[in-house]
């Protein structure tokens, strides 16, 4: 029996190492479908999944779509531009409406932290957090963990260097929780204005310079400079950021041969990463996208597959 007893997948913070392992093991079984001619499993037949994205997304949304379809769930895509949210509908009106349609699971992305949690409390169906503000993005961190394990054979004991905008990054937060639970040690590095105050309390080390930290890293995890979240003045310019924190061709030489470079995408080429670095043999960026489907299949299976969970009463 697999270790899982949750209605929702809201963050990595609340997961145990055993639960994370359950997802990773399951993802590796789900990945077998990739090599099949007919990519269709009957597992979630008759289940309805709603994708509710209040923020743009390509990778996450597409991979949830593929994962749902490969497992035969019915899928409805609600993107904000087309929905009544632009007419001023409140989040709870939207939630109410969705509940009335009777889905089995809602995948939600929102610019505000805490929205998936609020929906999970109010909806009887399962909720997956596909990114909430700067809080968490659990399925991204899970696919990163999966990719690290697949490429390096383990997570425990690895030195992982997180570079960039830790302050605004939900990916970084989820990665830190996940990596530490799985026994890796994490060093963060970025402009001091982009490191959250009190980041040490997460149990991470703060790196001094990229040139000093790169040779020590087993995994270099680059974060996207989020131009859309950038208030002015947190760092002088993109050029200076690239100079201090970007992985260009010369810095590739500082990264060990057996190390791994990951990036959640989309990349700002020439800022946090160069084209050469994305195409380097140590880069797992495309593999991350590929693994995203398997990890999301695993999450859907765990949330929708077992029916013994007590469904919450609707409390709207």
């Amino acid at each position: 029996m697999a270790e899982w007893n949750r209605k929702d997948l809201l963050g990595i913070e609340e997961l145990s190492a055993a639960e994370i392992e359950t997802i990773l093991d399951l993802a590796s079984s789900c990945k077998q479908i990739y090599s099949r001619q007919i990519k269709k499993l009957p597992t979630l037949r008759g289940k309805t999944v709603i994708l509710l994205f209040f923020e743009p997304s390509t990778r996450t949304r597409t991979s949830f779509e593929i994962a749902s379809k490969w497992m035969s769930a019915d899928l409805i895509n609600i993107s904000v531009a087309q929905s009544s949210v632009v007419k001023g509908e409140s989040l709870y009106d939207t939630a109410h409406t969705i509940e009335a349609m009777g889905p089995d699971l809602v995948v939600v992305r929102h610019r505000a932290a805490g929205v998936p949690q609020a929906l999970a409390q109010r909806l009887g169906c399962s909720v997956i957090n596909a990114g909430d503000g700067a809080h968490e993005h659990p399925t991204q961190a899970l696919l990163d963990l999966y990719t690290i394990q697949e490429r390096l054979g383990r997570i425990r004991g690895l030195n992982v260097l997180l570079v960039g905008d830790i302050l605004h990054s939900r990916v970084a937060r989820s990665q830190i929780y996940g990596l530490q639970k799985m026994g890796a040690s994490v060093t963060v590095l970025g402009p001091s204005t982009l490191l959250p105050k009190g980041i040490e309390s997460f149990g991470v080390k703060i790196g001094k310079s990229l040139d000093e930290e790169l040779p020590k890293a087993d995994v270099v995890s680059l974060l996207r400079i989020q131009k859309e979240r950038q208030q002015s003045g947190l760092f002088p310019s993109l050029d200076e950021y690239a100079l201090l924190y970007g992985i260009g061709e010369e810095r590739l030489g500082l990264i060990r041969d057996d190390a791994l470079i990951i990036h959640p995408g989309p990349t700002n080429l020439g800022v946090e990463i160069s084209l050469a670095a994305t195409e380097d043999k140590r880069s797992a960026i495309n593999q991350q996208v590929t693994n995203g489907v398997a990890v999301r299949m695993a999450a859907l299976y765990l949330l929708l597959g077992g029916g013994g969970l007590e469904r919450h009463e609707i409390a709207l």
């Binding site: 399951l26 590796s28 079984s29 789900c30 077998q32 499993l41 597992t43 299976y301 077992g306 029916g307």
Partner: peptide, 22 residues
């Protein structure tokens, strides 16, 4: 062969069978 993704009782058994490799 693992058959767990093909079960007809997934929504009633109340636990998650471990899915192994085919």
């Amino acid at each position: 062969l693992d058959i767990n993704l093909y079960r007809d009782d997934l929504s009633t058994i109340g636990y998650h069978p471990i899915v192994r490799k085919t």
